[in-house]
């Protein structure tokens, strides 16, 4: 599904990703953990095509070169990012936005567009997943939403747009325990054989709810360790610093889990 090889990315002469290697099979959920500034969010940004980075290396997604596609083409190909900080778009209704997004994707895939009535029915069904009510849909995109509401809105969009590869960037940050539970159960409901997920998080807490198939540890722009879900528990106990020091010697070889 996704194969990242020797991915480097720098911004204003500062190298942030220094050779990331990662492979994700259909239906797998991988977690990427690491301290602040390790490059986790940059990886997400590069994967969705945020501009401003000087990128080298390769990212193959379903057999095609992802890096040559525009952000909207990547979206049409099924790549979705739940943003860490979803932006507010004043004056644009949430419902209208999601319908436009879904219809854009359908159009790019040569599918028929949904009319407002059909879309409403679809949205109402998906809203149950994240326990949102109609009032959210009538507000402007993310405008005045609380932190938890923004994150739920991201998962709602994921549910409606049905991506093949979902990247969740710090979806747990700023959530209280109840909101975390809602968001995680929404995500779990969306796990399926054909859908892979890359869960980026700073804390092990989220992984109690969304249990990954694999955990990767990222420090200083590289994946330095990979393992099963127990690795997250270990990290929680010993912190990243220990990992960094312990793994310093094998930075160049670590990373790929095949």
């Amino acid at each position: 599904m996704l194969k990242i090889e020797e991915l480097h990315a720098s911004i204003e002469d500062k190298e942030i990703l220094r050779g990331v290697n990662l492979q994700l099979k259909p239906g797998e959920v991988h977690a990427i953990m690491g301290p602040n500034g390790s490059g986790k969010s940059t990886l997400a940004s590069v994967l969705i095509g945020r501009e401003g980075y000087l990128v080298s290396g390769s990212v193959t997604y379903e057999g095609q070169d992802l890096l040559t596609l525009s952000p909207e083409e990547r979206a049409a190909a099924g790549v979705f990012l739940a943003f860490q900080h979803p932006v507010e778009i004043p004056g644009v209704g949430n419902m209208y936005f999601m319908r436009t997004a879904l219809n854009s994707l359908r159009r790019q895939r040569g599918e028929e567009e949904l009319d407002p009535v059909d879309f409403l029915a679809l949205a109402q069904e998906k809203m149950k997943l994240v326990e949102m009510d109609q009032t959210f849909m009538n507000r402007s995109v993310n405008e005045g939403f609380s932190g938890g509401e923004k994150k739920r809105n991201e998962i709602l969009q994921m549910a409606i747009l049905e991506p093949k590869l979902a990247i969740l960037d710090e979806t747990d940050s700023g959530l209280d325990i109840d909101a975390l539970r809602v968001v995680a159960s929404g995500v779990n409901a969306l796990r399926s054989e054909g859908r892979s997920m890359l869960v980026i998080t700073h804390h092990q807490r989220l992984l109690d709810y969304i249990v990954p198939d694999q955990v990767h540890v990222m420090t200083a722009g590289r994946i330095v360790r990979s393992g099963g879900k127990d690795l997250a528990v270990e990290l929680e106990a010993h912190g990243y610093t220990g990992t960094q020091e312990a793994d310093a010697g094998r930075l160049s070889t670590a990373g790929i889990s095949r």
Partner: peptide
């Protein structure tokens, strides 16, 4: 730029995204 990227990430082509953001600005 962040609004544009957000729209495009959701699959909305750039031109349409610009128009959507501008219309929202004028609402």
């Amino acid at each position: 730029e962040e609004q544009l990227l957000y729209c495009r990430q959701r699959g909305i082509p750039e031109e349409e995204a610009v128009s959507m953001i501008v219309n929202g600005f004028c609402r």
